Structures are given as C-alpha cells and as structure tokens.
Simulated assay, not measured.
Amino acid sequence: MSEIVTIEPPQDRAVTLEEARQQLRLDGRDEDLLLVAKLDAAQAELEQQTGLKLCEQTLELQLQDWLDEITVPIRPCTVAEIRYTALGGSTVALPEADYVVRRRHGVTRIRPASGKSWPELGKDGLIRITLSAGLDENDPDLAIARAAILVKTASLFENREGAACLAFDTLVGQLKCRWI
C-alpha cells in the first residue's frame, strides 16, 4: 500500500490570476474570489486527468514494503532521497549507489542497483521516498497545460451552471498522448 504526502506545496499556480483576468477581459476585481476558485478547479482537473504535477513541489511517497520495482505515481519527478525504518527502529537514508532510478515515457521507476537488494525493514517499517515534482517553466507541456487551464477557467466562469468544454478536453488529450 502506498500514500503520497505533500511536504512542500506549490508556491504558485500554473496560471496567475492576472493572466486569467486578461483572458476574460475583466477590468474589475469584484469577482476575483470566484475566478481564483475556477482557476484552482481547472488546474486540479487537469492534474487529475493527466497525472501531471504542473508546479514545483516536494512530495513523499510512503510504502509499507519494498517492491521488486517501485513505480512512482507522480509525473514528472526526480527522486531526492529514500529513507526507511531499519531493523533497530532508526530511520536510515539509503545510499544513492544502492538503487537505480529510471525514467521512461515520463514514468519514474526505482529498483535496487545491480548486485544489491533492498534492505530489511524493521517491524512496522516505513519507506519514505522524497520527490521533487513539477514541470520546468520552459517545458512545452506546461504551455499546453496553461492553455487548457485558461480555456477551462473561462468556460467555468462564463457558464456557471456548467457546460462541457471541448477545447479543454482536446488539450488534455494532447498532454495524455505526450506522456504515454
């Protein structure tokens, strides 16, 4: 069983409030709270549908057992550290030389290095893998994601009763295809 815990949340949104205000051609600020809610909803929906983390953040993947190969359910990410509860009950950092991190098609996998095996866990042991996640500011996928968020936010804002947003669905489909 695994769990993702946020250690350091994103400091920004993928799309700023000002960018959304410009997209909608809003001069007044009286609906900013509503617009922020729509921005957050659009970004959350995009991240949920694509499995991507758009903004830089630090997360922790927590596991109860070692797997032959650990597949990280966060994209894109880098492994910053692996810690585990050792037999004596202390928390130990696993040396980088003891494991291999491979990233293929955006999926990060971790396995023991050649000739190594995972260390034995203590009773009720826990494995904590610290991850740096989020797209780089210059990543072309971030540009697609930002466009999708702006389109979805505008649709949510203008159609407050709810309506389908084909442009958003199309852009999300493009992102999904790029990360297969």
Rank of each mutant, 00 (worst) to 15 (best):
I82D: 04
R103H: 03
R102A: 11
G122V: 02
K123S: 06
L135N: 07
T71G: 08
E81C: 10
L121I: 13
I70H: 13
V107L: 04
I127M: 13
A86L: 06
D68L: 05
V92C: 08
A86Q: 13
E69W: 02
T108R: 01
L126I: 08
V101D: 00
I110R: 02
S114M: 05
R103M: 09
V101Q: 05
S132V: 12
Y99M: 02
T85D: 12
D68I: 03
V92G: 08
V72R: 06
R109N: 14
C77T: 15
L63I: 03
A80E: 15
R104F: 05
Y84N: 04
R128H: 02
G125M: 07
T71V: 14
E120F: 00
L67S: 15
G125A: 14
I70E: 11
S132Q: 14
A133L: 06
T91D: 04
R104D: 13
S114Q: 14
P95Q: 06
P112T: 07
I129T: 09
G115A: 06
E69T: 15
A133T: 07
R111M: 12
V79H: 02
V79W: 04
C77R: 12
D124Y: 13
V100W: 00
L94P: 15
R128D: 01
D98S: 10
Y99P: 13
S117C: 08
V79Y: 09
I82L: 04
K116F: 01
L131A: 05
D136A: 12
V107G: 01
Y84A: 06
H105C: 02
D98A: 09
D98T: 01
T78P: 01
V100G: 01
Q64S: 07
L63V: 04
I110P: 15
V92Q: 10
R104E: 12
G106I: 06
R104P: 00
P76S: 11
L67D: 15
R104Q: 11
A113V: 05
L63C: 07
P76Q: 11
G122W: 00
I127A: 14
C77F: 12
A86C: 14
Y99Q: 04
R103L: 05
T71Q: 14
I127P: 09
L126W: 00
S114Y: 09
T78L: 04
V107M: 03
P73W: 06
D98Q: 08
R83W: 00
S117V: 09
L94I: 07
R109A: 14
P112S: 06
V101H: 00
S90E: 15
L94C: 11
S114H: 09
Y84K: 07
S132Y: 04
A113L: 02
H105E: 09
A93I: 12
P73E: 00
L63A: 11
I74K: 10
P76T: 10
W118M: 07
G134E: 04
P76I: 07
P73D: 03
T71Y: 03
I127C: 15
E81K: 15
G125N: 10
W66A: 09
P76Y: 09
L126H: 01
K123H: 04
R103E: 15
A80W: 00
L87Q: 13
T85Q: 12
E120G: 02
R111Q: 14
A93C: 09
G134M: 05
R103A: 12
G88F: 01
L94T: 11
G134D: 09
G122A: 03
W66Y: 10
I82S: 11
W118V: 08
V92L: 09
G125Y: 02
G106N: 10
